[in-house]
Structures are given as C-alpha cells and as structure tokens.
Design a protein around this nucleic acid. Sequence first.
DNA 1: CAGGATCCAGTAGGATACTG
DNA 2: CAGTATCCTACTGGATCCTG
Lengths: 149, 149
Amino acid sequence: MATTTAAQRRAAAKVQFDAFLAACPSRQLLDRISDKWVVLILCALGGDGLPRPARGKGGGPRALRYSQLARTLAGVSQKMLTQTLRSLERDGLVTRTVTPTVPVTVTYELTDLGRSLLEVVRGLKTWAENNMTTVLAHREAYDARTSRP
Amino acid sequence: MATTTAAQRRAAAKVQFDAFLAACPSRQLLDRISDKWVVLILCALGGDGLPRPARGKGGGPRALRYSQLARTLAGVSQKMLTQTLRSLERDGLVTRTVTPTVPVTVTYELTDLGRSLLEVVRGLKTWAENNMTTVLAHREAYDARTSRP
DNA sequence: CAGGATCCAGTAGGATACTG
DNA sequence: CAGTATCCTACTGGATCCTG
C-alpha cells in the first residue's frame, strides 16, 4: 500500500534526534554508551574476551555469569560492573536471568538491540588496540615538541 | 618471500594490546575515545553537523574554526572543548592550524588517523539517534516493572 | 577570536563491610 | 555467588575572569 509506505517514511523522518543539541535525549544516550565499561561488557558478552575461542559452536554471543564478567573485565569494581549492567538491562541491551540454584546463578546475555550496538562498540575496542602504537608515537612527538622551552 | 610474510605476521601478532587487561595502555586509550565530546567533535569535523550540507564539493571532512565547533556542539564549555581538542591533537587525530590574522584564526582538521576513528564513532552517534525511541520504551517498561511493590 | 587560569560543586568510582 | 549499602576521595566539568 502506498499509504503505509508514506506513513512509514513519515514516521522514520519524524524521529529526528540530534546529539549535537544539548537538550536532545540522544546526547544523554550517547554519553551513556560512550563508556569504557559499556564497551568492554558488550564485547565480553559478544564473546571477545573468552580464553577458549574454540567453543561448541563458533564464538558467537553467549550468556555469561556475573563472576565470569568480573574476571574478564580485569580491574573492574563490582560497583561499576553491577551499575553498568543495570543500566544496560534498563535500556534493553542485555537480559538478566536468575537461576534459583544454591547459591543463586545469574547470567547476562545480549539482546538483539545489544548485538546491534556491539557491532559499533567492538569497532572502538579494536581501533584502540590496533592504533595504540601510532597514538603512542604521536604523543611522544607532541610532548617533545611542547616541552621544549 | 616467505620470510617477509612470516616477519609481517610476527609484527602484527606482536602488537597484542588487550583492552580487557587493566594495565594495558589500550584500555586508557579506549577510555579517552569513549567520550561524548570526542565523538561529537570528530563528527563535527567530519562535516556531520554543518547546517548547509550542499557545500562546494560534497560535505566531506573539513577544517573548522574554534568558534564554529563551539556553535555546533551546543552546550559545550570552552574548557571541555579546548581540553578535548588538545588531547585529540596530542594523539594525532586532529591538526591545529593558527593563521596570524587579527584577531588570530585557528582551525582544526581531521588527520588520516582521525578519519579512521571517525568511521567508528560516527556509528555511535547515529546508533544513539536511531535507537533512541526503542531505548526509551525499554526504560519505561523497566521502570514500571521495578517500581511496583 | 581563541584560549589560559582559577575556583568550586557535583559526582564518578574505588575500598570495604554486610546479606539472601 | 551475586549482589546491596555506606563511606570517602579524586577527578570531571561548568562558571567566571583575564589575556595575546
């Protein structure tokens, strides 16, 4: 139907969020997802930090336990881990599943929305890792240039 | 040559930065580039926030003046703008050009390295803008679910 | 115009202790 | 095991004033 298509076009065009605007909610969302821990958690749930890449299927997104996440993200405090996981859950990026064993087992898994964001933030992590040497060289040159009286 | 290939493989494999490790410098770099202002500045220098998309050539990366950046990133303090620009310059992501007019004119432009990062962070900004509605719906559902006694 | 310098409130985030 | 709660520090980041 032409009407449906037109309506869809309008709906898509209507939602004009612009992160350049201070008051736009998308700026706050950008602020939330532009976070070290968000990137690392999503990548971990995406299967990037698993020590055993040769898993059952193919290293795709997996459900991880809280303690597994804590171990993968070396140096994260439980406060930041829990806090970040909560906000990710609230935003619909991860699901939290509680299995009533003794002691209780809690697993986190990416949602479809979370996987779509993973594609983006994974690029951030790999960019940082791949260009570290170049950036380090630039810093050295910059510091040598500016520290000279 | 087989030796060259082997050496290249070794060189590529040798630079094993892992942002999952707390002590790895790539984690700090990830922390730096995972920043609201970094994303917005790079996007602005990439030509995303220009009011006139129909420019001379094709809206590609351009040199922008300090004041233009300040206007594009609505609500940014001059402290954060200057501070972020300095760190971007230090890391070799942007160049700073001073033209000795009166008053002085300063322009910022992306380097090749900066452009490579722009490809990534631009995805972050557009993701936030495109999925804002979905995230908002998830939050509402989550809050309604948890606020109930 | 493009910042540098300073002051200062708010909060991010770590350490620690306790719990279902 | 998987948190919650509390305390406390350090840094973030905004506002303001000043300069080449």
